[in-house]
Amino acid sequence: MTTDTSREMLRVSDLHAGYGRAEVLHGLDLRADAGRVVTVIGPNGAGKSTLLKALMGVVPMRGEVRHDGEPIGELPLEERVMRGIALVPETRALFGSMPVEDNLRLGAWRQRHQGRAGMDEALDKIYALFPRLKERRVQLAGTLSGGERQMLALGRALMSQPALLMLDEPSLGLAPLVVQEMFRTIDSLRATGVTLLLVEQNARAALAVADYGYVLEMGEIVLEGPAAELAGDPRVVETYLGTVAAR
């Protein structure tokens, strides 16, 4: 699939967001071009998850957010989903008492007009991406391993065929080998044309898979640039990459 990478899929200007009187994000500017992987790294409490929640419409915000050129800052969560935005939250938010395949089907409600054939085709694509989910399609989601739950959360989001997919800490709580597998999957999604906004504490893995990166500290962007350049920036190396390498 060819993608017009010169097209802005996401543009955020002067974004302020928070909870009640506590402002967490202070005037953020960022962009993600179509078909690119953009990462936001930073320490705990920097506001990374708040950023994704604000973009999804579940945290109060002010400023301008444009998706594929159209303003969406005033739209409710449901309308943002219908426009092709999906979020895989840090908590996974699966229905543990439902089978794997039912969880996946719930992710496709945006595409419900496609009928059974369209649903089956979408499922086949997810099972090709995650063969383990096919093996466990009748298993209850709550009985899956941590890595399998993350696969299911990602697969469910992809069932909606999003144009913009946002991932909140996809490596959280996963074993190192599973983390490697997850990031290989994220890298492979480029071929589908989806734009990825990746929030991640594992800065080394995030910058290795991303095209462009932002460093978020105390609610403000303090550094940005091509991911390869950030990975070589002395401040990033000392603050983020060194700690990862020392594990």
Results as ranks from 00 to 15, higher is better:
residue 1 M to I: 09
residue 1 M to F: 08
residue 3 T to E: 04
residue 6 S to M: 03
residue 9 M to S: 13
residue 11 R to L: 10
residue 11 R to G: 02
residue 15 L to V: 02
residue 19 Y to C: 04
residue 19 Y to R: 05
residue 20 G to S: 07
residue 25 L to P: 12
residue 28 L to Q: 10
residue 35 G to M: 04
residue 37 V to C: 09
residue 37 V to G: 01
residue 45 G to T: 03
residue 45 G to L: 08
residue 46 A to P: 03
residue 49 S to M: 09
residue 50 T to W: 05
residue 50 T to S: 15
residue 56 M to H: 12
residue 60 P to D: 09
residue 64 E to D: 15
residue 67 H to I: 11
residue 69 G to S: 08
residue 71 P to N: 11
residue 71 P to I: 11
residue 74 E to T: 12
residue 75 L to M: 13
residue 76 P to K: 06
residue 77 L to R: 13
residue 78 E to Y: 15
residue 80 R to T: 11
residue 81 V to R: 02
residue 87 L to F: 03
residue 89 P to H: 01
residue 92 R to T: 01
residue 93 A to K: 15
residue 96 G to Y: 00
residue 102 D to K: 14
residue 105 R to C: 12
residue 105 R to F: 01
residue 109 W to H: 14
residue 111 Q to F: 01
residue 111 Q to R: 15
residue 112 R to K: 15
residue 115 G to P: 10
residue 122 A to V: 11
residue 122 A to C: 09
residue 126 I to M: 14
residue 130 F to G: 05
residue 132 R to K: 13
residue 133 L to C: 07
residue 133 L to K: 04
residue 136 R to G: 02
residue 139 Q to D: 03
residue 148 E to V: 00
residue 149 R to Q: 15
residue 150 Q to H: 10
residue 151 M to W: 02
residue 158 L to H: 08
residue 164 L to P: 06
residue 167 L to H: 06
residue 169 E to T: 04
residue 170 P to L: 08
residue 172 L to C: 00
residue 176 P to R: 04
residue 179 V to S: 05
residue 183 F to T: 02
residue 186 I to D: 02
residue 186 I to N: 05
residue 188 S to G: 14
residue 191 A to N: 08
residue 195 T to P: 02
residue 199 V to H: 13
residue 201 Q to C: 06
residue 209 V to R: 02
residue 211 D to L: 09
residue 212 Y to S: 04
residue 212 Y to H: 13
residue 213 G to C: 05
residue 216 L to D: 04
residue 217 E to V: 14
residue 228 A to K: 14
residue 234 P to F: 11
residue 242 G to H: 09
residue 243 T to V: 11
